[in-house]
Amino acid sequence: MSVALYAGWERSSSTAEGRETRHSFSFGPHYDPANLGFGPLVCHNDDVLDPPAGYPDHPHSELEIVTWVLEGALVHTDSTGARHVVEAGRAQVLSAGTGIRHSEVADPGSGRCRFVQAWLAPTAAGRDPSYVLGEAPRPGSGLVEVVGPSGLPIGTVGARLLVARLDAGQSLVLPEGARQHVFAATGSVSVGEESLAAGDAVRITDEPGHTVRASEATELLVWSFRGSAHPG
């Protein structure tokens, strides 16, 4: 059982024209054998794009790719025929399955875009690619499950993404889960005895019931996993 704090300033970063990405896990040339993932979560990237920058058409396979837009809007197109402008406060799940190509660029009409993207290992390989887009949770409604059994479908059994928008002084209790990845996207909070500023995260293993308390307006992203077979 453990609660481990990961400071945002310690994340590795990648830059390109109009784009900056901060990586919570080992990624590409930023290889770290001690930080390959957390349960089925193998990537948790925090991207900032200046229009029209982004990621041109590229392939993926056998990944569940979940994107949460924090600011601005992201234009998504893929080889399933999907094309959407994903606005702030919305989630999308791209199940790459046997193979898919997609592109993601900042919407020129919406200014700077910031989004968090997570990649998860699917429970079963060989599925057909698919795409789904979800609505935003209402501010002040506590933890809202945006991906999982009560939200958008995902091909990783037991995985849930919950989002909360807290005002200063508000608190909530984290759900039960064998593993939980708690990320302060904005603002600042305490999680048990740990204090998180924007960009910080805690990884919790087999310690349910922690209280989160916001010291200022905060957007919180929580990945919760039940009994994962993935050892990360």
Rank of each mutant, 00 (worst) to 15 (best):
A73E: 04
W9H: 09
V75G: 03
L221Q: 02
Y55D: 03
E62Y: 09
G192L: 02
A185I: 02
L143C: 02
A197R: 12
A91R: 11
V132W: 07
E10C: 08
A185T: 10
E194S: 14
T205H: 13
N45W: 06
V212S: 12
F183K: 03
P231N: 09
T123K: 05
E193P: 04
V86T: 04
G18K: 05
D206Y: 08
V191E: 05
S190A: 11
T186I: 05
A73K: 02
H76D: 06
L161P: 01
A168I: 04
H181V: 02
V163L: 10
S195L: 09
D78N: 07
G99S: 09
S228L: 02
P231Y: 11
R101A: 07
A91H: 09
S224C: 09
P153M: 00
H210P: 09
D206V: 00
D200C: 08
Q170P: 01
H58P: 14
G227V: 09
P40Y: 14
S188R: 12
A82H: 12
H181D: 08
N35Y: 05
E194G: 00
L152Y: 03
L63M: 11
D107R: 07
V116C: 01
G227C: 12
G169S: 04
V66W: 14
W9K: 13
Y6G: 12
W9Y: 15
H230I: 12
G134V: 02
E207L: 15
G89I: 00
E104A: 03
V48A: 09
L41V: 13
P108E: 03
E10V: 02
G18D: 14
S61E: 11
Q180F: 03
V222S: 07
G99F: 01
G54E: 01
S95A: 14
Q92K: 03
V48W: 01
P137Y: 04
P52L: 11
W223C: 00
A229L: 04
G158C: 03
G209K: 10
P122S: 07
H102S: 01
V189A: 11
G18H: 10
V69W: 00
E10Y: 00
G192K: 06
H23T: 08
A229H: 06
S110C: 13
P122G: 04
S95Q: 13
D50R: 15
A136N: 09
E194W: 08
L5E: 05
S188Q: 10
G37Y: 12
V157L: 08
D47T: 06
H44D: 01
A88H: 11
G28H: 06
E193V: 11
G8Y: 01
A198W: 12
L133W: 08
A96E: 00
R22S: 10
F115P: 00
R138L: 13
E104V: 13
T218S: 15
G155K: 05
